[in-house]
Design a protein around this nucleic acid. Structure first.
Lengths: 248, 248
DNA sequence: AAGTGGTCTAGACCACAGC
DNA sequence: CTGTGGTCTAGACCACTTG
């Protein structure tokens, strides 16, 4: 069946062949693939070659490996939709797309996992503060459904002593900042991009290295425009999406 | 140095060790890592174990493999910023973040790579049309800097005959649609999420399977709100980002 | 030609889940 | 206990890039 003379590598041929069997419905959603040994025998290739093919499918998101049990066709998990009102300067949590219970932005549990002096220049640049006056706070957003996002906030180091107790009380760094500053904080800008889970984020989020993450970063400021913090949040891209409604 | 008794697997220890050597500046940005054979000898592990470690670093985005040459510490490529005016119903291309020349939304080259009957139910659902009346058009957005995005559009099949010639003329499907319909098309909604490059998208974009992609999808409609098309665009997450400015 | 990463094999042992 | 996926080794050959 598979051969290797000038054509594509065996593991890629096998990966594409399995992908077709899945797309055609021959191996339906949720079903278990043949075991690695079985595939190795059926296709007459080494088990490592089978593993390489299955690794491709796993990274592509079509398959989920459960160790000790087997490899299964992934059934897409329902994405939580967060409504972003594009015409106001606040997040509008909830909305009718999903019920409120697993609302990740309000009912979330956010805990601090690390604080450190700022080592990166980007935050200092966008905030217009010298790096030595900045501190970085890392938090993990973990609703009941499992870890959803890791965030890094860069703030003026002077705010830190008051911020961490307020964080304990509110369980939400944005709210803690409003409390410490005694004033509402607005969005200056926000940006969306995507990145791969690195060696630090991956274990925190319970995903393999390289898992696609949605990045939402930006600066928040005082009503007069003075920047307050820079945040860079990495969210599980398969579990959440941000929706902008342009019509009412 | 590395040992395997109850602790983490060798390849992960090695990956983290190399990551630390990179973060500390011992192996600076752009520099070449020792070859796989050298690492294999230095750390007294098999070359395949070294490859597994380097694979982790590649997926994490910290390292870039150039075959026949070596493995290099990745220097982040400058992200093109696309300004999205959150208060209007149009894309505001350009802006001062990057000069206009590589503007991916206006000067882009978009070409059709495939058309097919709609096989997915989601597009029919959000457009409120029966699946058999929908066609799917796949395009590749490829400015001079290399492939940047793949898009899938779902439109009423009746529009297809007029649409493809208009697409040739304008080089831009959104513009072609406006021309065919004889009316401006507005955003209904847009959503941001992230996904992994699958076995089809990966070769089109020239990235490895699983590469993080920024997904921007949504419905556009006529001024009266009648839906016209559903689009799902997958963009190289490391090459572009969407910026929403909330202040002027 | 020499060096690099890419693919593939055969074989071994381990850790985990379920019966 | 059995079967699953996870890790690791030794060795081979290939394809690509550069001198």
């Amino acid at each position: 069946m598979l051969q290797r003379h000038g054509s594509a590598p065996l593991y890629l041929q096998l990966a594409r062949h399995l992908q077709r069997r899945i797309d055609s419905g021959e191996i339906p959603s949720g079903a278990r693939l043949p075991s690695e040994s079985e595939l190795s025998a059926q296709y007459a290739v080494n088990r490592l070659t089978v593993r390489q093919a299955i690794g491709e499918l796993e990274r592509a998101g079509t398959v989920e490996i459960r160790r000790g049990i087997g490899t299964f066709v992934r059934t897409p998990l329902p994405q939580v939709s967060v409504q972003v009102d594009p015409r106001s300067q606040r997040v509008d949590p909830g909305g009718p797309h999903q019920g409120p219970p697993p609302d990740p932005e309000t009912a979330r549990v956010e805990r601090v996992v690390a604080t450190s002096p700022a080592a990166e220049g980007e935050a200092a640049r966008v905030l217009g503060l010298p790096p030595e006056r900045l501190s970085r706070i890392d938090t993990l957003v973990e609703p009941a459904s499992g870890p959803l996002a890791v965030s890094s906030y860069w703030v003026d180091s002077a705010l830190l002593p008051a911020l961490l107790p307020a964080m304990e009380a509110t369980g939400n760094l944005a709210a803690a900042l409003q409390q410490v500053l005694g004033a509402p904080v607005e969005y200056d800008w926000r940006a969306f991009s995507a990145t791969a889970a690195d060696l630090d984020d991956a274990p925190l989020l319970g995903v393999p290295t390289g898992h696609p993450l949605l990045v939402r970063e930006g600066v928040s400021c005082m009503p007069d425009g003075a920047p307050v913090y820079f945040v860079r949040r990495r969210l599980r891209g398969d579990a959440i999406r941000f929706v902008l409604n342009y019509r009412d």
